[in-house]
């Protein structure tokens, strides 16, 4: 089932008065349950594409449809509501709220959604257990390792069962072993809970783990297909 349909996306930035083409006529669809990697070198437009699909940025041209609704025509408050209820975000540098504990960070989105306290607590502890952080509920980010923080970020992104999780180079700040464990975790969540993941990367290990790989170069899709598992 198609959940995202991005059509002819163009994004032109102004850099010191000089127009820079970040995306050029990019089209793609994302289906429910996909585990997609957008791969490409730095400056290829991966993060820009993720931001536009996630409603954090607007394309210069083109349309993004989420379940048939055009994101590019939505107001900032509609987009905020959409991000809250339909998306989960995992950022490169974890970006947990530093004054909240692991448990509170995971509960935060559900707080915004108005999920009752007991239900919040149950779901947050369950997902923290699943990502291997049992017993670390009350630790603040500065008392967690990078890998642990990123697992909290994953738990936070998936706890509200979003339609799509967008992960911008999620393993970039992790060592290879921790990065692999994180990919195992995301793959497990994808298979077990049916959560759709779209992540950007230039890490070959991450590309290998994707079931679908989209290659970007200079803002254009230069290759697309099922990842080579051979």
């Amino acid at each position: 089932m198609e959940i995202i349909n991005a059509v002819n996306l163009v994004k032109i930035y102004e850099d010191k008065g000089v127009p820079v083409m970040a995306l050029s006529d990019v089209s793609l669809t994302i289906n429910k349950g996909d585990f997609i990697s957008i791969a490409g070198p730095s400056g290829s437009g991966k993060t820009t594409l993720l931001n536009i699909i996630g409603g954090l940025d607007a394309p210069t041209k083109g349309r993004v449809y989420l379940e048939g609704e055009d994101l590019t025509r939505m107001s900032p408050s509609q987009l905020a509501r959409l991000r809250l209820n339909k998306y989960g975000f995992i950022f490169q540098s974890y970006n947990l709220i530093p004054v909240l504990t692991a448990l509170e960070n995971v509960e935060y989105v559900m707080h915004l959604q108005g999920v009752p306290s007991q239900e919040r607590h149950r779901r947050a502890t369950e997902i923290l257990d699943e990502v291997g952080l049992r017993g670390m509920y009350n630790r603040r980010p500065d008392h967690l390792s990078g890998g642990e923080q990123q697992r909290v970020a994953v738990a936070r992104a998936v706890v509200a069962i979003p339609m799509l999780v967008l992960a911008d180079e999620p393993t970039a700040n992790l060592d290879s072993a921790t990065g692999e464990r994180l990919m195992d975790l995301m793959a497990r969540l994808n298979q077990k809970r049916g959560i759709t993941f779209l992540f950007s990367t230039h890490d070959p290990m991450v590309m290998d783990r994707a079931r679908r790989l989209i290659r970007l170069k200079d803002g254009r899709i230069v290759g697309e297909g099922n990842a080579d598992r051979g």
Binding site: A80, R83, F89, I97, P98, L112
Partner: peptide, 13 residues
């Protein structure tokens, strides 16, 4: 940056 992350997650202005 922190406020940006909060807003990205759906926190209203």
């Amino acid at each position: 940056r922190e406020f940006g992350i909060m807003k990205a997650m759906g926190t209203r202005p």
